[in-house]
Amino acid sequence: EIHIRTNGEEQARKVYKMLAKRNYDVKIEQHNGQWVVTAS
């Protein structure tokens, strides 16, 4: 499982799309105001 911390919604969405293209199961979560993308 991969966790990627991003500094904002826009970046989180870019990372989300990139990983989704590679057939990862991707989730975006917010932790303490930080956007974290989780891929498995």
Rank of each mutant, 00 (worst) to 15 (best):
Q34F: 15
V15C: 15
K14I: 10
E1A: 12
L19D: 00
I28A: 02
Y24L: 09
I28K: 01
R5V: 14
V37Y: 01
I28Y: 03
K17D: 12
A39S: 05
Y16T: 03
K14R: 13
D25Q: 13
V26H: 01
K17Y: 11
N23I: 04
A39T: 07
I28T: 02
S40T: 12
A12E: 00
N7D: 10
H31M: 12
V26Q: 00
S40H: 09
I28N: 01
K14E: 08
G8F: 13
Q30V: 13
R5I: 14
V37S: 00
G33V: 03
K21N: 09
I28V: 06
R5D: 03
N7P: 06
T6N: 03
R22A: 10
V37A: 01
Q34K: 08
K27D: 03
K21S: 12
W35Q: 00
A39N: 03
V15H: 03
E10L: 11
T6G: 03
V37M: 02
M18A: 10
T38Q: 04
V15Y: 11
W35E: 00
E29A: 10
D25T: 14
V15E: 02
N23P: 03
I4W: 08
A39G: 07
D25I: 14
D25V: 14
A12C: 15
N32E: 09
I28P: 00
I2Q: 02
Y24E: 03
W35L: 01
A39P: 02
E29G: 07
V26E: 00
S40M: 10
Q30C: 14
Q11P: 03
T38L: 09
A12Q: 01
K14N: 06
M18R: 06
Y16P: 00
V36H: 08
V15N: 01
W35D: 00
A20Q: 13
A12S: 03
T38G: 02
A12F: 02
G8T: 15
V37Q: 00
V36P: 00
H3N: 08
L19G: 00
Q11R: 07
D25E: 11
G33P: 01
R13N: 06
K14F: 11
N32D: 10
R22D: 05
K17G: 06
A12Y: 01
E1D: 09
M18Y: 14
D25L: 13
I28S: 01
E1Y: 15
